[in-house]
Simulated assay, not measured.
Amino acid sequence: MQTLRSVPITARPVEGDAADAPASYVAWAPQGRRLAVPAGPGAIQLVDTDTDTAASGPTVDGLVNQVAWSPSGTRLAAAGGDDGVFVWEPGRPLRAHDDWVGAIAWSPTGSRLASGARDHRAMIWEPGADRPRHVLTGHTGEVTAVSWAADGYTLATGSADATVRLWSDGRCLRTWQHPGPVRGIAWSPDGRVLAAATGTHVAFHPAADRPALTGHTGPVHEVSWSPDGRHLGTTSADGTVRLWDAAGRTPLAVLDVDDGRPAFAFHPALDRIAVWTRRAGLSLWDFSPA
């Protein structure tokens, strides 16, 4: 099992109380220098890891549940708990959902934005438009996760209704059934494999010759691939962040963060990882996979 070395960082929230934030999230900008993390229920802080400084980021009226940088790093989108999706720039809400928005993802080209909400719907937006390009219906529970394939057209949605659905051009292509709620999904960088966090494990589609990741003792909330597709990261209600070898499906490292809802992100250059917890805030760790 690999031992990870902590990278010193002292940046702290500059306003608000991050411990009051209802959600945990952490997102690297594509250039690998800035991180977006919580600074309170409706506030985002931007941490510059090169200078170890934090600055006030965008704020919203309501809650921030998740954030996502556009591929160019010039726009930051936030999923809001008051049924809105916010994008800076241009800095105005996109409203069409009827309930809490908890999932958001940019397409690989940055030309589209997907959102998922408690109203059982997912939506595809073109930033700048007032209404969604597509409204995706069919789930019977909260849409908890959205993820774009590498082709920029195929969207996967995961739901509390225990299904994963694939969509293209507003049409559902297929549905995969799981034994319990799906809390997180992520396409591999090459778009060939979809990982789905359900229960205490991570399943894969297509499933042939791909055993599930097992080892967590609590529900898995999040799954993500490293930029090179060789590794996976998971977070769980058991208070751990785990790193895995994607080919062998074997664990590489375990971080015990003593928080039931940690957030995690691989650095774009794959030399470190970021972890956010409501108890300890932001931590950085060297990651040097073999």
Rank of each mutant, 00 (worst) to 15 (best):
Arg165Met: 07
Ser168Met: 14
Ala117Met: 03
Ser159Pro: 02
Trp148Tyr: 07
Asp161Trp: 02
Pro179His: 09
Thr157Arg: 09
Pro132Thr: 10
Gln177Val: 07
Pro132Glu: 05
Thr137Asp: 11
Ser147Gly: 13
Gly110Ser: 04
Glu142Gln: 14
Ala162Ile: 00
Arg118Leu: 14
Asp130Pro: 00
Pro179Asp: 14
Pro181Cys: 05
Ser147His: 02
Ala162Lys: 05
Ala145His: 06
Ala117Thr: 06
Val146Ile: 08
Thr154Phe: 08
Ala114Thr: 08
Asp130Arg: 09
Trp176Asp: 12
Gly138His: 09
Arg112Pro: 02
Thr175Leu: 09
Asp161Cys: 02
Leu173Asn: 13
Arg133Gly: 04
Gln177His: 10
Val143Cys: 07
Gly138Lys: 05
Arg131Trp: 03
Ile124Asn: 00
Gly180Pro: 00
Leu113Ser: 12
Arg133Glu: 15
Arg118Gly: 15
Thr144Cys: 15
Trp148Asn: 08
Thr140Cys: 05
Asp151Lys: 06
Asp169Cys: 05
Ser168Cys: 10
Arg133Ile: 12
Val143Ser: 05
Val164Pro: 03
Val146Gln: 05
Gly152Ala: 13
Thr175Gln: 12
Arg118Ser: 13
Pro127Ser: 12
Met123Val: 02
Gly158Arg: 04
Gly138Cys: 14
Ile124Ala: 00
Trp167Cys: 15
Met123Ile: 11
Val164Tyr: 01
Thr137His: 03
Ile124Asp: 01
His178Leu: 14
Gly110Gln: 02
Thr175Asn: 07
Gly128Met: 04
Asp169Leu: 15
Ala162Asn: 07
Gly170Thr: 02
Trp148Asp: 05
Gly180Tyr: 08
Ala160Lys: 03
Leu113Cys: 13
Leu173Gln: 12
Pro108Ala: 06
Glu142His: 13
Arg133Gln: 15
Arg118Phe: 13
Asp169His: 11
Glu126Asn: 06
Gly158Ala: 07
Trp125Cys: 14
Ala162Met: 00
Leu136Gln: 10
Thr154Glu: 08
Gly141His: 04
Ile124Leu: 14
Asp119Pro: 07
Arg165Leu: 05
Ser147Phe: 10
Pro108Gln: 06
Ala150Ser: 13
Ser115Phe: 02
Ile124Lys: 00
Val164Glu: 07
Ala156Val: 03
Gly138Asn: 06
Gly158Ser: 12
Thr163Trp: 03
Val143Asp: 02
His178Ala: 11
Ala114Arg: 04
Glu142Tyr: 10
Thr144Ile: 05
Val135Met: 04
Ala160Ile: 00
Gly116Ile: 09
Gly141Thr: 02
Gly116Cys: 11
Gln177Arg: 10
Ser115Gly: 09
Pro179Ala: 09
Glu126Gln: 15
Leu166Pro: 03
Ile124Glu: 04
Pro132His: 06
Ala150Met: 05
Ala129Asp: 11
Thr144Leu: 12
His120Tyr: 15
Ser168Phe: 09
Ala162Pro: 00
Trp125Tyr: 08
Arg165Cys: 13
Met123Trp: 03
Ala117Tyr: 00
His134Gly: 04
His178Met: 11
Glu126Lys: 14
Ser159Gly: 12
Ala150Glu: 05
His139Ala: 09
Gly116Asp: 03
Cys172Phe: 00
Val143Pro: 00
Val164Ile: 05
Ser111Trp: 05
Thr137Tyr: 00
Asp151Ala: 10
Gly141Pro: 00
